[in-house]
Structure formats: C-alpha cells, structure tokens
C-alpha cells in the first residue's frame, strides 16, 4: 500500500505485574490491609468470624455499586437507586404479607426494580438531551413518593412471614449467602466491564459518545440495558435489606445512591466517564465495609464513619490531581 517507509510500530504490551503495582488498585489493596490492621488494633472483637457475621448489613450496597460503575464509566449518574430499593422493598413486603410463596416475593422485588430501571432507561434514551442527573432526580422523588403513598400514613411495613427472608440471611458454612452472591456477581460484572466487547463499548461511550456512534456502537441500546440492570440490582439490594430488617419504611435505602457512587469513585472510577475498573470498586467497597464493621464494634457513631468516608472520598480524588499539579509545577522550574 501507500509509500511504505518500513517503519514498524510496536505492539508489545507492558508487563501486567508492573501495571498492577503502579495502579490505583495496588494502592487500594495496601489501604485494605492497612484498614484491617487498624481495625484489629482498634477493636478486640475484630476477627474473621465477627467480620463475616456483621458484614451482610453493609454488603447490600455493593449490589448497587456494580452497575453504578458502568453508569459512571459512561459518564452518567443514577441517583434514583436508593428510592428504587425503597419501592422494591415495600412491594416485596406487601406481597409477602399476602401469604404468597417466597419465590413470588423475590420475583416481585426484582420485577419492581427492573420496571423502575426501565422507566429511567426509557426516558433517558428517548430524550437524550436531558442530563441523567435531572431525570434520575425526578424519578428519585417519584419512586420514593410512590412508596410513601403505598405505605400510607404509618410510613412503614413489616414482613409478617419472615421465614424466606431469614433464609436469605443465613450462611453456607461460615460464609453468608450474600457474600457468595456479591462475589459471583462481582466476577461477572468485572469480566463484562473489563474483558467483553460490551464493556469496551461502554468505555467508548464514556470517553467519546459521538465517536462511539460513528463507529457503529448502539449507544442508546447499551444505555437502556445498563439502566435496566441498575434497577434490577436495586431490587436485589432491596431483598437483602428486608432480610436484615424484616420490613421497609419510607427511609429505606435513603442515601444509598450516594454510598454506591462513593464506593465506585473511591475505587478509582471517574465520575466524568471512561476511567477506572470494577476491581477498584470492589476493593474500595470492602475497605468501607471493613471500616464500618470495625468502627461499629466500638460503637463509633454512623455519622463519624460517614465523616471519615467523606474525607477519604475527597482525598482519593483530590490528591492525585494535586500531586499531578505539583509535578507539573516542579518540572516547569
């Protein structure tokens, strides 16, 4: 072909070991180890047994983090997921109290979540001019609003038949079911995002949507799928919420969307799109879970833990930027 100058272009990838050590995930693993050492020192009750026992309460949010990572990688955001979880939990309890078999309860929660996701997805893919923040802000208010209407003036419901939910909260050996489920889903989501054509396309959309469209990627179809799965996972999250509290109220899942986003962002997934991977999100999720369990054992108030999380979150994003600026300034000298 055209004027071949015989120039060769290398296609040897960097060694993967070097990549891991110098990555954000590498740092996060160190932080995870550090947090565990700290918790061990801080609380005499902090051990594997108690960690596994107390973990499930905090793990439900990890279900939200996984699809949220996809949404963030696309450069978008969904702040309605906490409300979806609330509505799903409410409906699941209502169905449960009619005496329906537990499988129907599970399906209800998942179906309600999926339906909410489909509503978000439909609006967002048909009105692409609208920022996801606005759309999910309004559906956040609507979904919780519907739950409020359904729950009535009491504002809460408890599941009369708790057998099924109790089963969800049990363990296989020493490991709670929810941890199994989180692990399996984490692997699946990580492979889809990191290794599959679907994942590559998600990154393309998040980095340059127009180029993605010109390259033949079905941008809207992918967005539709992701927002729908987000709803489905919110339904799953709702089931496990009910399995720890045996009920739902108007504040169920409040702020979960923020926690999920915080986990993902702390894990190195940029909210501006195109960057990060699910491994980072999962590690950061466990950092947060361990911290919550450890501090919780010594009755540190939830608000203080949130304060620490807030500082960590800002530091995680701000420090690399500041170091970069400093480096540039030094180079200029």
């Amino acid at each position: 072909m055209a004027g071949k100058s015989g120039r060769t272009i290398s296609n040897k990838p960097e060694s993967p070991i070097k990549k891991i050590i110098f990555s954000w995930e590498g740092i996060l693993i160190l932080v995870l180890i550090g947090v565990n050492i700290f918790c061990k020192w801080f609380s005499e009750y902090y051990n594997m047994f108690n960690l596994l026992r107390q973990m499930p309460v905090y793990l439900a949010e990890v279900f939200l983090m996984m699809p949220m990572a996809f949404i963030l990688v696309m450069g978008e955001i969904d702040i309605s997921v906490g409300s979806i979880a609330c509505l799903s939990a409410t409906m699941a309890c209502i169905v449960c109290n009619t005496g329906a078999p537990f499988i129907v309860v599970i399906l209800t929660a998942l179906a309600v979540g999926t339906l909410c996701g489909v509503i978000n997805a439909t609006i967002l893919t048909n009105f692409t001019e609208l920022p996801p923040m606005i759309v999910t802000l309004s559906t956040q208010i609507i979904f919780r609003g519907i739950a409020e209407i359904v729950l009535g003036s009491g504002g809460s419901i408890s599941a009369a038949n708790t057998a099924g939910f109790k089963a969800l909260g049990t363990k296989v050996g020493k490991v709670p079911i929810i941890l199994f489920l989180v692990a399996i889903l984490a692997v699946i989501f990580a492979i889809i995002l990191g290794k599959s054509t679907f994942g590559r396309r998600v990154y393309a959309i998040g980095t340059n949507r127009l180029t993605a469209h010109y390259s033949g990627i079905h941008v809207q179809k992918i967005r539709f799928i992701i927002y729908t799965v987000m709803g489905l996972m919110a339904g799953l999250c709702a089931l496990f919420l009910v399995s720890t509290s045996y009920g739902a109220n108007t504040t169920t899942g409040t702020g979960f969307e923020m926690d999920a986003i915080a986990m993902a962002v702390f894990g190195g997934i940029s909210s501006t799109g195109g960057k990060g991977n699910l491994a980072g999100g999962i590690i950061s999720a466990f950092i947060i879970v361990c911290l919550r369990v450890g501090l919780g054992q010594r009755n540190v108030h939830a608000q203080v833990i949130l304060l620490i999380l807030g500082v960590l979150l800002i530091a995680a994003v701000a420090l690399p930027n500041l170091i970069g600026q400093l480096r540039r300034a030094v180079k200029k000298q």
């Binding site: 909210s271 203080v304 807030g310 979150l313 994003v317 420090l319």
Partner: peptide, 20 residues
C-alpha cells in the same frame, strides 16, 4: 484548586458537614 468534580466533592462534604 484540586479539580474534583463538583458532584463528588459536594457529596464528600455532604457527609462531612452533616457529621460535624
């Protein structure tokens, strides 16, 4: 100064100030 996206920065401060 640290170029943190506003949604992330204010989310962090939402936790911090509420806790304070």
């Amino acid at each position: 100064r640290a170029d943190v996206p506003p949604i992330i920065a204010t989310m962090g401060f939402m936790y911090i100030y509420r806790a304070m």
